[in-house]
Each structure stands twice: as C-alpha cells, then as structure tokens.
Design a protein around this nucleic acid. Structure first.
Lengths: 242, 242
DNA sequence: TCCCTATCTTTACATCGTAAAGATCGAATA
DNA sequence: TATTCGATCTTTACGATGTAAAGATAGGGA
C-alpha cells in the first residue's frame, strides 16, 4: 500500500550508503565503535547534528534546497526527526539564524580587536559585516529573511538583539556619548539608522548582484570592499548625503 | 484511478461556485453575455488577468501564499494554465516583479513633479521609495528577492534598469554633473552606492520590523518617514558617517 | 525488575511545481 | 464555405515537501 511519496523516499534511502535496512540491527551498527564520533542514535546530540547538517545543506544547495527532509537526509535520520526538535520548518530556520547571528557577532567583535588608528576603528565593523555576508551568503540570507523566522524564540531574539546592541554601542562610542538603554535623541536615532541602513543596504545590494553594474563602471579592478570604503569615507559634496 | 492530488484539486474546484462541471457547456457559460467583462475564455486576456490575480493573491496572502496554483484559482482557470504563459513559477514572479518596478518608477517620477525647494527636491525620491515599499510590501519583497527572479527576461531587465538609471541621474543632477553611461569616477560611484544603500537598507530594515526598536525609543509619535528625513538631513558630527 | 517518557521511525495525506497528452476554439487557407 | 492548423486551456500524472499521528525503542527512575 506504499504511496508514491513513501516509495520515492524509500528508494532514495536505499540508494544511500547508510541505512540499507530499517531494522534494529542497522541502528545498532550506527552506534558500533566503528563509527565513533557519529550521532549516538538516541541521545541529545541530534539537535546539534541537525543544525550543522542544515548549515552544510545551505552552503551546498542554497536557500531553496534547505528543506526539512534534506536536512534529515544529510544527518542520516528519518524525515520526521527534525520536527521533534524544532517543531516545524520555521523553528529550524529560526534556530539556524540564531547560530548565524552568533557567528556574525563573534566576527564583528574579533574584527574590532587589533585595530589602532581611528580610521581603522571606524571601518573595521562595516568591513567585517560585509565580509561575513560574502563568506556566508546563505546564512546572511536566512538571518535577514524575516518572513520565515520566528523572533519570539528566545535564542534568536537574544542573538539578534546582541547584534543591534553592538551596533548602537559602536555608534555611541564614535559620538563619544553613552547611549542609554531606554531613550534616544533624534540625532542619535538618525546616526544609528544611517549607519545600519548604509551597511545593511550595501550588503543586500551586493549579495543580490545589484552593484555589479556600478563596480563594472568604476576604475579597473575595484573591489566591493574598496567601494564600501569610498562610500563610508568620501567627503559629502552636496548639502545632503542623498 | 484518481490520485490524492487530483482528488483534492477536484474537490476544491467542485466546492467553488464556478466550474461545477468540466464540460464544454460550462466553458460556454463563462463566455455568455451574462458575464460581460470576464476573461473571454480563449483569447489573449489571460496573461494580464493572471498578473492581476497574482498581485491580489500577494497582497491578500503574502509571499508564502503566492503559488502558481493559487494564482490559477484566483483567475478561475486550471492549475496548469499559467505554465503556458510564464513557463514556470520563476517566470510568473519575474513578470510580476517587472510590473512592480514599473509602478515603482512611476511613483518616483510623479513624486519629483510638483516640488519646488531644493530640500524637497532631495527628499522627494527617498520618501517615494519608502512610501511605495510600505504601500506594497509584497511587491517590494518580490522585486528585491533575487533568488527567485530571472533577470534575463527583457521586461524585468528593462524595468529594473530604468529604476537604477533614474537613481543615478538624480544623484548626478544633485552633484551638477552629467553621469555618462560608460564610466564612473570613484566619487560618483561612492555617492550612488551611498544613496542607494541608505534608502534601500532603510526600507528593508523597516519592512522587516527591524527599526521598531529604534522608533520606540525616539520621541513619542516619531514616524518612519520622520526618521528617514532626519537620517538624510542630520549633520554629520563625526568625521565618518558611520 | 519493570514501566515511563523522550526520542526516533513509519505511515499517511494535502499541497505544490511541472511535464505530457488531450480537448477546444479562432483563424488562415483551400 | 469547409477544413485543417496552431495557440490556448484542461486533464492526468508524478515526484517532492511540510506536517500530523501512530508505532517502535531505549535509557532512567519506580
């Protein structure tokens, strides 16, 4: 009474090297000492393994290929296993985005160390921002693809909030003010919005290939990083920045 | 021999008021004078009707609900009808994005008319940019969701290109230079990248709800438009804009 | 020792995109 | 005018996906 769906899944699994038969014996084999560092079948490591598998799938096949079933296949478990740990697809994507935000924050923080001149200090964060997005376009895409995310999840909320706080603090330090948690002046808000909009907009346009046109018309061999620097440091020749 | 898929679709159609029976008689009925302005069954209007149906579905159910089958249902045709006009889902989304870019360009152009002072001149475009995105978030989402679009389609390529050209021209006019089609100086490229990144980034963050935090901490009742103005006109107090 | 609960698998189903074959109508052609 | 032809639309079919529900399994506490 196998339906088409089940048939396809079964065939795929049988083609794969692992999981040749769905019996207790095969499961025990996965726990055998021969496969030391593999997921130990029935113990807490599956959640982490699924997140790592998701990251691999995302980098290998892009956002469109990042499905619950693909992640389950990559991790070598049944297609319904992720449901128990993440609830649904939104849950998995949200947790993966949280991982991304933590990587992102770490990259920005480490970029701010080992920096001396004020100019370097001001450019380190934006450069790290764009560099992370270029190195992990899939992750960056998920982190800022709100429609598929659930920000009520604590891990995602915290990681994203930390990202914002780091930005606001950097702006405050550059303006030599302390940004208090509760209130902002219009000037402070404008400064934060400008900085974030500029860097985030640049990154988004760059990843979407929308800056290729501009880069192609600039002097030979101009990189995106160079354009970012010029954008951030060029003198404002008109009264308005736009 | 009806499969589950077909069963479900058939049941849905039968539940719907239209198309109670799939015979020549029912199709003729749709052409009957009683339904004057309806799609005339077998003549060229379907393509346009599908695009309008797609826009309705997008506004009503969001990006996730915009499927080929949903559009076909909305237009009252079989689920495979769109394929003939758009090839696949990417085709439909691309043509819809082209429609969006044309609306977008028209909105920006009309905003630049009936403007007098230089300050208004400088702010009209950014305001119209953000206003369009706020009024049509679904459309804006599609237009800048590159992974699902095919820019080799002439209509999309042209409409998007016109959008960019309008922006570059506006920057050039503000700098009192003529921007030649082929080459750009580093300063020109930086100015264009800054303007576009700032407005596009602001819009993206705003639609993703990422600016709620900032807006909430600003003086009571500060709108997004007001923050945009402040961001574009506030004096640069540090040596660097970021 | 035995059962209970969290974890994982199986099974099932509605939906989606897409391909392929059949039906239908307008129009060109004879 | 009658007939054929090609564009348009429908039917049928299939693999893939998300998700729900029920069954298996194993580790830990009674």
């Amino acid at each position: 009474m196998a339906k088409t769906d089940t048939k396809g899944e079964t065939a795929r699994h049988q083609r794969a090297p692992r999981r040749t038969a769905s019996t207790a014996a095969s499961r025990a084999a996965r726990r055998a000492p021969s496969a030391k560092t593999e997921t130990p079948y029935h113990h807490g490591a599956l959640r982490e393994a699924l997140l790592q598998a998701a990251e691999r799938v995302l980098e290998r096949e892009g956002l469109a290929g990042l499905t619950l079933r693909a992640v389950a296949r990559e991790a070598g478990v049944s297609h319904a296993a992720p449901t128990h740990h993440f609830g649904d697809l939104t849950g998995l994507l949200s947790e993966l985005a949280a991982v991304g935000f933590r990587q992102f924050n770490a990259a920005m923080a480490s970029a701010c160390d080992s920096v001396t001149t004020p100019l370097e200090r001001a450019l380190a964060r934006p450069k790290a921002y764009v560099a992370y997005a270029q190195a992990h376009p899939g992750m960056y895409g998920i982190m800022f693809r709100t429609e598929r995310l659930d920000y009520s999840r604590p891990s995602l909320h915290e990681a994203a909030e930390a990202s914002f706080a780091g930005l606001a603090n950097a702006i405050g330090m550059m303006r030599q003010e302390q940004i208090s948690g509760d209130a902002l002046t219009m000037e402070q808000g404008a400064a934060i919005a400008r900085a974030w909009s500029m860097v985030h907009g640049f990154t988004t346009l760059l990843l979407d290939g929308r800056l290729k046109d501009i880069l192609g018309r600039l002097p030979e061999g101009t990189t995106a990083e160079r354009l970012l620097e010029a954008m951030l440091t060029a003198p404002i020749t008109t009264k308005l920045p736009v």
